[in-house]
Design a protein around this nucleic acid. Structure first.
Length: 273
DNA sequence: ATGCGGACCTGTTAGC
DNA sequence: TGCTAACAGGTCCGCA
């Protein structure tokens, strides 16, 4: 599930339920996630602290607590957070409960366990996993010119280049495919062979796709008080992702599927040069 | 410094 | 119908 828009939507969905609530208990049923969940560190530092806010950085959620006690959540490939309560039965893969003073529970569910739940110290942005991240795609810092400059020393294909979190965060496999299609750039093109003007086009489409899908996420995933409030993602909007052998929407050529950096890549060989 | 492939997991589906 | 293999929206790490 989680691409940047879902992480953003998750944050917005749970924040009103948890803001200014005290953590009364942390229940960890499965601590083997991407990294071992630091059980005692979390319990010692988080219990009895009030949650002041949640921010998103890349696909990480940063929970800010009083006394500068903060923790990070990453949803990996299959993770989700929902607001629930003691009456709800615990389902398979419900790994962590953060019990709040209003008796609500922030419940972490993650079948593949590629996600993470980490203590982030007093200054989360300096955490090892956050400090070397590239700019946020929706920020002013991210532009065609920025990409062009960064690409000068890179021979890697442009799709893997924009999926590199050190270059820019939050562009997952779907958005990489979609924005390259909209910018009419072949995903195999070496990053250092793309002109400034094409990078400007690409940066523009990355921003547009993410923005429109955050809006979509807001409408399809708005109910965070029930874990089932999901609905059909925003698949209707996709132009090339998962469209192998279907006609291109602009030229009718059949969409190709290749593998780049071990990830499926969909594109139109006629429109994307 | 950059690029590449492997690793971490379970669930779902395509193909025989 | 049932088994097996391939694949899935992420990203870090170690090695060349």
């Amino acid at each position: 599930m989680p691409e940047l828009p879902e992480v953003e939507t998750t944050k917005n969905g749970i924040l009103p339920h948890v803001k200014n609530q005290k953590i009364s208990e942390i229940i960890i049923r499965q601590s083997s996630l991407r990294w071992p969940v630091p059980k005692s560190k979390l319990k010692t530092n988080l219990v009895n602290k009030k949650i002041l806010g949640i921010k998103r950085r890349a696909k990480y959620l940063i929970f800010y607590l009083e006394g500068e006690n903060n923790f990070l959540v990453h949803l990996g490939m299959s993770g989700s957070l929902c607001i629930t309560d003691q009456a709800q039965e615990i389902k398979k893969h419900d790994h962590i409960d953060i019990v709040l003073s209003n008796n609500k529970i922030i419940r972490y569910h993650d079948p593949r366990r590629f996600g993470s739940f980490l203590w982030a110290g007093h200054n989360p942005l300096e955490h090892k996993l956050l400090k070397n991240l590239g700019p946020e795609p929706l920020s002013f810092d991210f532009s065609g010119n920025y990409l062009y400059e960064k690409a000068k020393s890179r021979s890697v294909n442009i799709k893997n280049f924009i999926m590199n979190q050190q270059i820019v965060v939050g562009v997952g496999n779907i958005y990489a495919c979609e924005s390259l299609f909209l910018a009419k750039i072949n995903p195999k093109t070496p990053a250092n062979k793309v002109s400034l003007s094409r990078y400007e086009e690409l940066a523009k489409h990355i921003k547009k796709t993410l923005e429109s899908s955050i809006k979509q996420g807001g409408t399809t995933l708005k109910d965070f008080t029930h874990s089932d409030g999901k609905a059909g993602y925003f698949k209707q909007k996709l132009k090339v992702y998962d469209k192998y052998n279907e006609p291109c929407l602009s030229c009718k050529t059949l969409i190709k599927k290749i593998v780049l950096g071990q990830r499926s890549t969909f594109y139109c060989n006629n429109c994307q040069k």
